[in-house]
């Protein structure tokens, strides 16, 4: 007798929360990325008197040199966003390659690669990044390199763990028993299973990377002075905190919004994967 019923086929009529949030965040990211095209002026233009209050001509006031705080914050957001993407992209590429190599090769290759990864993880990443950035001298590029150098091990570990556990699953054993080539098994039956967790880890990291970079910039380890960088703007505004709090607070709140968007996105993605996994 034929068993014909298919259980549990449900289609979502409504787009799910991650799609809505993802689209919103993506649209905002695009707006911020295109900021130079629609902003009235650049980050260094003096547009009024110093310390103009918010809503008095300039939406978020001016800083100690009479520059528009909102314009500088939006441009700073753009830098933060781009920097976070670069760090995560470098981390993902390096981490995935190392993780895949270790997971598939096994044996001595695995041992060596994972020991290196473990040591890198055992060091206090942000603190050593601070030393590297300080040694390389001021500059955003240097800071990015310094942070990326300590971000890849996370991805290497996740990818390697995924490859290792998926490799032992019955469906991969079945695929290799079924006469499929090892490349086919690796690409079609193992690799897709590693994507979900890595993407989720990466999206959850957006917020963390943004904050670590901002912390370094706050300490003076980002682009040198006139550049619009949120961390640096906050620390420069500290001395005027009681008279002109907006100079520090606006870029800090901008950072918060950026990190929060990343964290919400990552959280929803993780939920979705957990649900898919439990079915």
């Amino acid at each position: 007798m034929a068993e014909a019923t298919v259980v549990g086929v449900t289609r979502h009529r409504r787009p799910s929360a991650p799609i809505v949030v993802g689209a919103t965040v993506g649209a905002l990211a695009l707006v911020v990325a295109l900021a130079p095209a629609w902003l009235p002026y650049g980050s260094r233009k003096v547009v009024g008197k110093p310390f103009e209050h918010p809503l008095s001509g300039h939406l978020l006031g001016t800083d100690s040199q009479g520059r528009d705080v909102l314009v500088r914050s939006v441009l700073g957001l753009r830098t933060s966003l781009g920097s976070a993407f670069i760090v995560i992209a470098i981390g993902l590429v390096v981490g995935t390659i190392i993780g895949l190599a270790a997971g598939f090769a096994g044996g001595i290759v695995d041992t060596v690669l994972m020991r290196i990864t473990d040591v890198a993880l055992a060091l206090p990443g942000p603190v050593v990044a601070l030393a590297i950035a300080a040694a390389l001298g001021p500059g955003l590029g240097h800071t990015l390199i310094a942070v990326a150098a300590f971000w890849w091990p996370w991805y290497a570990r996740i990818v390697r763990g995924q490859v290792q556990s998926i490799r032992k699953l019955p469906y991969v054993e079945a695929a290799s028993l079924g006469g499929l080539g090892s490349l086919r098994v690796a690409t079609a039956h193992v690799l897709p299973g590693t994507v979900g967790p890595v993407v989720i880890a990466a999206s959850l990291d957006i917020g963390a990377v943004v904050l670590v970079l901002a912390g370094l910039s706050f300490l003076g380890l980002g682009s040198p002075a006139p550049a619009a960088e949120l961390g640096a703007m906050t620390s420069q505004g500290l001395q005027f905190l009681f008279n002109a709090p907006w100079i520090s607070l606006c870029p800090a709140v901008g950072l918060f919004l950026l990190a929060a968007s990343g964290n919400i996105l990552g959280d929803l993605l993780r939920d979705r994967l957990a649900k898919a996994g439990s079915r």
Binding site: P170, Y171, A174, H189, P192, G193
Partner: peptide, 9 residues
């Protein structure tokens, strides 16, 4: 476990 022996995607 037949479920685990079939590639989920």
């Amino acid at each position: 476990d037949a479920g685990a022996s079939l590639t989920p995607w």
